[in-house]
Design a protein around this nucleic acid. Structure first.
Lengths: 107, 107
DNA sequence: TTTTATTATCGTAATATTGCAATATATAAA
DNA sequence: TTTATATATTGCAATATTACGATAATAAAA
């Protein structure tokens, strides 16, 4: 075999892991931090800012968009990426629920 | 190429991504939730509880231990795994710092 | 000591992920 | 329309991850 056996876990557990997975990459962390640092939506100066090739950045942006963590609006020939604040808060909430629910003292 | 270019990111960004990575697997989520649900430390009934082979569980436990999210105490021929509450809180804090710092309105 | 039960490690197969060059697509500018 | 610029997609090479069987290591029990 060799693939995550998602069938044996709940949708919630799989969803939580999937969210963590999108965040589990330093380039995507850096992209999110950069987008957020520009108060107005800034487009692909991201490619210049981060030290990765344009197709690589484009792919990372696609993944971030796939879970709605960012949105991308087309403006002429440029695209303007922004943090989707609603989803952002939702994810933060989801993670906190996990951490709060799971922390018990045992040993 | 084909590997994450960690050199171009900060230690903080790499560390954050690494933490997310450990959590980015439904089996590890399930293991953490199971360990936490047993108020006293329970050992590898985890293998029975989760539907994965013993070596697989052992490997996941190793990863969780590697970032100190759980501890494993040897008790005779059994090992007792527990949530490391101190680290747990620290990770939750770390993630919240990321989310709080990064959330700005742009679009 | 031998046996048995528990956990860890090794080796390997089956994907999944990361990154980039080449190229396609889309839109503004000339 | 042609050209230039910005972004997305495709295809591929280089790892990384997940899972498990076989086996080793450890310690209690017989």
């Amino acid at each position: 075999m060799g693939v995550t056996k998602s069938q044996i876990f709940t949708d919630r557990q799989n969803g939580l892991a999937a969210t963590f997975r999108v965040l589990a990459n330093p380039a995507r962390i850096a992209i999110l931090e950069y987008i957020a640092s520009q108060k107005a939506c800034i487009c692909n100066d991201i490619v210049d800012e981060i030290g990765l090739a344009q197709p690589t950045i484009s792919q990372h942006l696609k993944e971030l968009k796939s879970i709605d963590l960012i949105s991308g609006e087309i403006e002429g020939k440029k695209v303007c990426y922004c943090i989707n604040l609603e989803k952002w808060k939702e994810v933060q909430q989801q993670l906190n629920t996990f951490f709060d629910k799971t922390s018990f003292i045992c040993c």
